[in-house]
Design a binder for these strands. Sequence first.
DNA 1: TGATTGACTATGA
DNA 2: TTCATAGCCAATC
Length: 115
Amino acid sequence: MKNIEGKHDRFFADVYDVVRLIPKGRVTSYGAIARYLGTPRSSRVVGWAMNGAGVYPDVPAHRVVNRNGLLSGKMHFATPTMMEELLKNEGIEVKDDKILNFKSHYWDPNKELAL
DNA sequence: TGATTGACTATGA
DNA sequence: TTCATAGCCAATC
């Protein structure tokens, strides 16, 4: 495991930083984060970064879903139902592993952070 | 070093 | 609209 604060892992650190900025009750997509970091083609890498986010505190990985609002990463949590429960706990409706009214809950760092 | 995998996305049928 | 395929980037084997 490399040091998260090292330059070589800056991408991962940036991903975690953006995820922490996601407001409660909001969600975003891997692609949106990747694009905000300047690497729109690295959406899969964002997912990989999330895979290691579980060991860090204050990284609400459950607020990151794919572009369809589907809880594609639910199975990577402690329990497959944990992601859904966390989202529901924040006021987000989840049905059949998918976020209802996803468009309304969507939080785009490219717009909200409006760099 | 080379091949495979994956919490993705875009495009075409 | 739904399904299949291609491209992408980093990590893992």
